[in-house]
Structure formats: structure tokens, C-alpha cells
Computed example of a mutant assay.
Amino acid sequence: MSKVYKGIISVADKFIPQALRPLWEHPAGPKTIFFWAPAFKWGLVIAGLGDVTRPPETLSIPQCFSLAITGVIWSRYSLVIKPKNYSLFTVNLFVASINIYQLGRAYLYQQSLNR
């Protein structure tokens, strides 16, 4: 860890209430990348939700497919690693779900063009 990050954690450590200590000290808690990577990945979910209002002809099928597959793979991985990372599982489940939905929209649009 960098000196800056260690300094921030040591200062924050003094303000964490006893009730939140188990979360704070968890191997996948806020002191680790295992917490922050899934936290920032929620940006993909928010972007996907924003795309729900986009016309289906503007959706990128390769992008939605790769995000859906990535979400499925990382959902599985998050339950296999030690410690299990349920926040990583949850965010990837949402990434997969929203992109599978988008793929469905794109597929139905393509089908409507073929009629």
C-alpha cells in the first residue's frame, strides 16, 4: 500500500465505531481493493440503467455481450475466491442482468427489421 493510503486509513481508523469494526476489519472490507473495485464498478450499472432509455438501434451488441459475459464470469469467480466477495458478486450480477436485458432489446429490434 502507498504511504498516502496508509495514512488515510490510520486517520479514519480512529473514527470507526465499534459496531462497524467487523466490516472495517473484514478481508474484503474498505481497507482493501476488494471493497473499492466493486464500489467503482457500480458506475457500469448506472451507465447501463441510463442506456435503458436509448433507442435499441443505438445499442452496441458486442459491448452489451462482452459486459454480460464479464458479469457472469466475475459473479462466479467472486463466490469461488477466498474470502468470498459478496459485493463483487452483487455488482457483477447487476452488470450481467442489465446487459442481458439490453441484448434482448437489441435482438427484438433486429427481429422487427427482418419482418
Score class of each variant (00 low, 15 high):
residue 7 G to R: 00
residue 52 V to E: 09
residue 44 L to Q: 07
residue 51 D to P: 01
residue 59 L to G: 06
residue 11 V to N: 04
residue 100 I to T: 06
residue 111 Q to E: 05
residue 84 K to F: 02
residue 46 I to S: 12
residue 36 W to S: 12
residue 78 S to G: 07
residue 97 S to I: 02
residue 84 K to V: 13
residue 76 R to P: 00
residue 74 W to D: 00
residue 15 F to S: 09
residue 8 I to F: 10
residue 36 W to Y: 09
residue 87 S to G: 03
residue 104 G to L: 04
residue 9 I to R: 01
residue 3 K to Y: 00
residue 55 P to T: 10
residue 45 V to F: 14
residue 63 Q to V: 04
residue 88 L to F: 12
residue 56 P to L: 01
residue 87 S to A: 13
residue 3 K to L: 12
residue 62 P to M: 01
residue 74 W to N: 07
residue 66 S to R: 11
residue 16 I to G: 09
residue 64 C to G: 02
residue 34 F to V: 01
residue 67 L to C: 13
residue 59 L to T: 08
residue 49 L to V: 15
residue 43 G to Q: 05
residue 7 G to Q: 04
residue 34 F to M: 08
residue 37 A to W: 06
residue 52 V to P: 05
residue 60 S to F: 02
residue 45 V to A: 12
residue 110 Q to M: 10
residue 78 S to P: 02
residue 22 P to H: 09
residue 25 E to F: 08
residue 12 A to G: 07
residue 35 F to I: 14
residue 1 M to W: 00
residue 50 G to K: 14
residue 111 Q to S: 03
residue 54 R to S: 15
residue 30 P to D: 12
residue 15 F to T: 10
residue 98 I to A: 08
residue 33 I to P: 00
residue 65 F to A: 05
residue 108 L to F: 07
residue 114 N to V: 09
residue 88 L to N: 11
residue 34 F to Y: 11
residue 108 L to Y: 01
residue 10 S to H: 06
residue 14 K to D: 04
residue 44 L to K: 03
residue 7 G to M: 01
residue 26 H to Y: 10
residue 10 S to M: 04
residue 95 V to K: 07
residue 14 K to Y: 02
residue 45 V to E: 08
residue 58 T to H: 11
residue 18 Q to N: 09
residue 43 G to A: 15
residue 112 S to Q: 14
residue 6 K to S: 15
residue 37 A to F: 13
residue 62 P to T: 01
residue 82 K to M: 05
residue 13 D to I: 11
residue 52 V to I: 15
residue 112 S to M: 09
residue 74 W to Q: 06
residue 52 V to G: 11
residue 66 S to G: 06
residue 38 P to W: 09
